[in-house]
Nucleic acid binder design. Sequence first.
DNA 1: AGGTATACTACACATGCGTGTAGTAGCCGA
DNA 2: TCGGCTACTACACGCATGTGTAGTATACCT
Lengths: 217, 217
Amino acid sequence: MQPDPEDLTARARIRDAALRLFGEQGFDRATIRGIADLAGVSSGLVRHHFGSKEALRDECDAYLARALARLNDQVRAGMATSETNYLTVAVSIFAPYRSYLSRALVEGRVAPLFDTLADLSAEWVAELDERRADPPEVPREARATVGAAMALAVIVLYEHVSRRLGVDVFSTEGQGLLARILLDLYSHPWLSPEEAAALRARLPEGSGSDKGKEGSR
Amino acid sequence: MQPDPEDLTARARIRDAALRLFGEQGFDRATIRGIADLAGVSSGLVRHHFGSKEALRDECDAYLARALARLNDQVRAGMATSETNYLTVAVSIFAPYRSYLSRALVEGRVAPLFDTLADLSAEWVAELDERRADPPEVPREARATVGAAMALAVIVLYEHVSRRLGVDVFSTEGQGLLARILLDLYSHPWLSPEEAAALRARLPEGSGSDKGKEGSR
DNA sequence: AGGTATACTACACATGCGTGTAGTAGCCGA
DNA sequence: TCGGCTACTACACGCATGTGTAGTATACCT
């Protein structure tokens, strides 16, 4: 899977160590000295290569974004829309960085990574819209965004989900269970059309189908 | 909604300040002195009331859990299953603590709070199961857990969702849009029964323990 | 060979932190 | 009136951290 750590450049080993310690301990609690130790270098070399602790984190963010983009191209080129396969592959690739990724996402960082996922989600939604009877009230991108967020929920809330399921959802065993849960959830609506219509009717007026031109960015 | 800060006891003001600063800056970056300043007290008083920084965080966690339990009882006693109302109420109550809550959840803390949400989700799933044709392959609690995680996705990934929607999802405007998105997502499955069956067929055997995922890597 | 840039180490410095200690003001029961 | 308890402040300690500086070795280019 990964090349032997000894074979990586010092710069790469530092980045990997940072990814791990930032994830395990959080950005503030992780120390440059700890990262240097884990990478087998001196603390000064960290500064030499990355300049500052924050710049090191930026590089970690960018690395993950590149990794997802690579995976994305790979999937797009390679296989069809076997979604659960995609899930399995994505999970196994990002498992080592799960903790880092969760913290980064919650803090609003790694926006390009989230955008890549949202775009992927949008493609899925586009397929759905083709064979859909009723016209969606809300633009595709909006639904795709929330859909992407929901898809990330299990990763971000990994600890709670694993605790309640009684299985590590990233283990092979847990992935089997998770896949079955997701298949069930994704194939069964939580609201009937009637219930949805009733609830929608009770919503205050305004902000219908056209949205997304407001200025607060 | 909140009583005037001057009316609160110093202990409560410290807790509120901690909730805010822990949320805004994270546990490590927030300082006891900063919390004390925001609460208008000396830093020694924080220690006097809570003993240590970690104990202060524990109290914050417990406070949020109590707040949700209170809301839960309130909803259960009061109104029927008007889910979107519940969403609005929950959002407006937890909006000030959104950031704190997200960080806490990602780190696996506030387990009682997550459990409360998961239990609520389980009740919803139970209702669904009653009018369901096909028997679910996977236990109710498991689906409810992932459902709860997904329901939290927008809160936890608030920054990314708001950024892509172009609206603060916690503003009144954003809540309207979000409600419409959720109604659409919850009332339209992302997989048809046939697709789900096809994908399920490709899953390795058994939900209890198994292996081989394909190795496209 | 020579010279320069790059990879890397060792070490010192200032700072801000959580925590500990000592002390003061005010309430309350006997 | 007193004793003691609680709420609260001021201040000092020790320490770990990010960063800065100086120095060494190795590789590359001409």
